[in-house]
Design a binder for these strands. Structure first.
Length: 268
DNA sequence: ATTATATCCTGATCGC
DNA sequence: TGCGATCAGGATATAA
């Protein structure tokens, strides 16, 4: 389940591979993806980067006009780079294929929740919230986003219209480090707790990026290999196992039809 | 206005 | 061993 660190990992790995290549042809195998092959044909790929949870490719057509191909991996989407035909045949759940002059970019997605769309400008990519890894995200900004919000903190952290990029795994991890119960209402986070929450958001995400993301069930990077953050997970997926701080068994609850993991002793 | 819920999708897992 | 039921979840549309 790709969240900000996983998407960042994919974008960083793809960038040097696709930079300067040209689109030979775009093939789609899923009618759900209404991707215009015409728009892509012959375009030069200028760069690959992350915006929110989108992997974005900046394209330039023959006249130098730019456009942006934004890929959202949602649950099970993968962007895989391959330069071998045999390898290409082996890929399962292939929904689209961007054949470039130096290899192919495959979009594989078992559950077909992912999206691919071309935008004329970067600003049109539908990312609403603040990127928590950016300078624009500040302690005071966090305070004002918490103000008056009546949602439990776990659900609040996953709101993409406030902060962009936190998903189910990192929401639990951030709250463990911030020592805040996932059930606590956002507005009830005390002023003196906000700095630790702020640091927890930034540190969990930057640490996960450093380790190329978490491979829990669905994530693979651009070469089809695993991320390395699993061994740093303190609560996610550890129901019944002892808390690494206090040995209390980790609890699993359901919030908004999703699993939340936390330590009932460390997090109040 | 804000928050809660249903929906999309299908592989993996579970219980009988 | 086989098979149906359940689970997993990011984001959005719709309902409350």
């Amino acid at each position: 389940m790709p969240e900000l660190p996983e998407v960042e990992t994919v974008a960083r790995q793809l960038h040097p591979l696709i930079k300067g290549t040209r689109v030979v042809v775009c093939r789609t195998y899923d009618p759900k993806l209404r991707l215009s092959a015409e728009l892509l044909k012959g375009a030069e790929v200028r760069r690959g980067f992350r915006r929110g949870k989108f992997v974005v490719f900046e394209l330039a057509d023959s006249r130098g006009r730019t456009s942006f191909l934004a890929v959202h991996l949602r649950m099970t989407g993968r962007l895989l780079w391959t330069d071998s035909a045999a390898d290409r045949e082996a890929r399962k759940y292939l929904r689209a294929e961007l054949e470039l002059n130096r290899g192919s970019l495959l979009f594989c997605d078992a559950r077909r929740f992912g999206t691919m769309e071309i935008f004329a400008t970067e600003a049109e990519i539908p990312v609403r919230g603040v990127d928590p890894t950016a300078e624009l995200f500040t302690l005071e900004g966090l305070r004002s986003m918490l103000k008056g919000r009546r949602q439990p903190m776990k659900l609040w952290l996953m709101r993409q219209d406030l902060l962009t990029g936190v998903g189910n795994i990192y929401a639990s991890e951030i709250l463990f480090r911030a020592r805040i119960s996932p059930r606590r209402t956002a507005a009830r986070v005390r002023p003196d707790e906000v700095p630790l929450l702020f640091r927890s958001i930034r540190e969990v995400l930057s640490s996960a990026i450093k380790h190329c993301g978490t491979t829990f069930s669905d994530f693979q990077d651009a070469r089809g290999t695993a991320g390395g953050f699993e061994r740093f997970l303190r609560v996610y997926g550890r129901k019944g196992e002892p808390c690494r701080r206090c040995k209390t068994p980790i609890k699993r609850i359901v919030q908004g039809q999703r699993s939340t993991f936390f330590c009932p002793n460390c997090q109040k």
